[in-house]
Design a protein around this nucleic acid. Sequence first.
DNA 1: AGTAAACAAGGGCCGACAGT
DNA 2: ACTGTCGGCCCTTGTTTACT
Length: 346
Amino acid sequence: MVMPRASASIRNPEVQLPILRKDKGNYYLEMQVNADSDDERELAVTRRVSLDKLSQAEWNELETQYNNLDLSICNDVGINKALENIKDCRIRRLFLALLTFLNPRQVSIILYLYREAAIQDNGSFVSFRSNDLLDSLGYKRTKDGGFAARVRSQLNQDLVALHRTELVFARSLQKGEQIGAKVSVKSILRIRDYEIDKVPRNFDLSKAADYTYELADAYSVALEFFEDASKQNRNVLFSKDIDFKEKLGGNAKRDYKTKLLIYIASRMKWDRLKEGQYLLISKNCLLKNVDLLGSNKSRNNKILWRTIEQLNEDDYIIEAQELTAKSKQTKIQFQINPQKIKCLDI
DNA sequence: AGTAAACAAGGGCCGACAGT
DNA sequence: ACTGTCGGCCCTTGTTTACT
């Protein structure tokens, strides 16, 4: 339920640009995703990286770099271009990780880990080998049987981003007569340990993520949003044959299909969708959550339907149709295939 | 005026390769 | 195993043009 919000891109009007914040001696680099006033489902989420290990000098340096940044041009010239003036590799990677948080590759990694959790049956704890994950993501091996350093590096950066980016969000809580709020601070996952094969290199997790192209060979992680299906939880289950391969030669920057799938799953949970019921979502809501925010409306619409069609071909959606009520906003009605995704109703 | 297609430019990612 | 560079490929996107 948190993922669609936490992964909102910089084009989304509810997303604020990253800021540096000092809070009682703690330093944060953070990005706020505001709530949508029209829809109580859409909670506000702050994603942030704690920078508590920074010295005063490093903080000053970061502030200087930040003040020289013009992040508002990200949408015009691309995020990489907007950041290329930052000479310090670490600061550049920090901003990049925050700006592109939960990019398609990272979402694929999460889906892989949750599937592994189901297979390994060890609660929220998952162990995996880096190369297995890279295989599952569909990357090609090099001639000598390994993976390109670039790809390896990317994986460690993604894992560390999922590990050290905290998500802060509030949920209302019934406290007797009053309605209070419960604020959660969670990461998508926490890296508990990692292994290096053969000669123990001098490998440091965050240093590698910030400065080098290194990757550990095996990791153990705890999934912080994991909820045990055997306990009284309302889970949305995906079938195990879910495909999260990077598309060949495709643009890994955008992946409308996975975004739509994740959003539909989150709505199934919010709406407590029972088997046989229709899922009803307004079209504007879909367009926003799939990140179709371009200026050409008809094109956005076309891409949305193309994407729905793809999920239909993959059997996630049995049928979808547009409902246009007079003087009301257009909605799309989905019939979901319970063989592929279903909401456990406990 | 509103919508849909055609055009053109540019971004980001993978893979290959050479070098350390 | 890591670093750095380059080309190719596909996709997105603002803009322009055509259509109803």
